[in-house]
Design a protein around this nucleic acid. Structure first.
Lengths: 241, 241
DNA sequence: CTCTTGACTTGACCTAGATCAAAACTTGTA
DNA sequence: TACAAGTTTTGATCTAGGTCAAGTCAAGAG
């Protein structure tokens, strides 16, 4: 489980590119990187993160998992899909909060102990700012989720997700449909039916690739936060003011 | 609108008690408090907070408002009920995110400009930690909201809210029912019907006061994060492990 | 103490999306 | 090149909670 020297230098150059380490140089990060641990998780594995046992900061080096909550009936809501390079920080959760990490692919996690992160924040103001940035984005993504989950009908939810995929993953659905459905708080059947409804408006999905008859069919489903990453954001081709 | 000197000293002692200023002394906070502005809002008023115009940190000194999102159909979801002493920090939102503040009572807001907050964070590590604490709690409350909104049936939602009120407001519903209904993502009618269902289990609401036949009827609706503030948390009278 | 206004409740009905079951694809593996 | 396992789709049916409309209740104003 311990990384060897060759891996270590590869890992470090990977870490240096992450937003959370921006504005810091390798020298400043050396001590922190020395505390890094690596853990392998396998497809199908489930881990319940709780602040007591997992008071750390995790980085998904490679793989895919979802953070979910399940109720007594077995209904599941996906709070976050954790992709490569994403961060999960149970160290920032309340002591009594816990959430299940459900590994969809084999996943390699890097993690740093809480104390090392705290020390780095204390010694380096820029790192504190990066943590604040990460937490803010997290909170904002959650606000957007609540909005999507509560205020959009099935078709709008799927449309919204497709804009997301269009802008951030160049017209490609990055995950299985059933995962996206769970993230949107709907059943795979409803997801499928929503796709049928969108097809009638010129939005087709051909094995995970989004095809548009005209090009602007998805714009009506876009929100400004997602849209900010679109090449035509706030141009005449864009619906945002 | 500018606070006079007498008010100022009253305001400052109020501020010193807030969690966000803990671990700091009045001397350290002097410069920050000097940048404070006061703004009055009136019942029924609506303000759209966006990061561009409201890149500040607000404190609700006195009053009540809700942060809501509304869709084209006029459906509303309450993302947060902002009570006295609560903080809202559009300065941490994305530049393109915006949310409506809908004032339920006349409200006096204090606010600090982004630059002053940033300077305070830079000069004072404890203040950065307090901001991180605030953002973490915010994110966690949102995760809990998603869970409640998506995984609970109407009766469980109301039961959950009542435990909340029981523990944090000593058996008293702090807000109008229709506001709580909107926060729980349901209509006032459904809220009312859910209360009827709970009444059959010995949980009665008599003008905003929660009455329990036995005393433990609500425990089944409690979650560990909320429960942590309960006097009998994790005792034999508590359902949490 | 009336009246008005807004908050809450009740009942009758409707609908979006869930559920269940079966069929049709996909994908990886032998 | 076919088999098994998983994923997605389709169709038929059901249901929790929404909608609408008509009360009832409560509180502040005159």
């Amino acid at each position: 489980m311990l990384p060897n020297n060759k891996n270590l230098s590869r890992y470090h150059s990977y870490l240096l590119k992450l937003p959370i380490f921006q504005g810091l140089n390798e020298g400043q990060l050396k001590a922190l990187f020395g505390t890094m641990q690596v853990k392998q998780h396998y497809k199908g594995e489930m881990v319940t993160f709780n602040a007591a046992k997992h008071s750390k900061l995790y980085i998904n080096f490679d793989g895919l998992f979802k953070l979910t909550k399940i109720n007594e009936c077995g209904d599941e809501i996906v709070l976050r899909i954790v992709d490569k390079k994403s961060i999960v920080s149970p160290m920032h959760f309340s002591k009594f909060y816990n959430i299940t990490a459900d590994f969809i692919r084999n996943t390699t996690l890097f993690y740093f102990p809480e104390e090392a992160i705290k020390k780095m924040m204390k010694d380096n103001h820029q790192f504190s700012l990066n943590i604040i940035q990460y937490l803010s984005e997290n909170a904002q993504a959650l606000m957007l989720s609540v909005e999507v989950l509560q205020l959009k009908a099935a078709k709008e939810k799927v449309g919204w997700y497709l804009v997301h995929a269009k802008i951030n993953n160049s017209f490609k659905l990055p995950y299985p449909k059933s995962l996206i459905a769970a993230y949107l708080g709907m059943k795979p059947e409803s997801f499928s039916r929503a796709l049928n409804a969108l097809k009638k408006d010129g939005i087709t999905l051909e094995n995970k690739k989004i095809l548009l008859d005209n090009g602007d069919e998805l714009c009506g489903y876009c929100d400004p936060v997602t849209g900010a990453d679109c090449p035509s954001f706030k141009t005449d081709r864009c619906l945002h003011d």
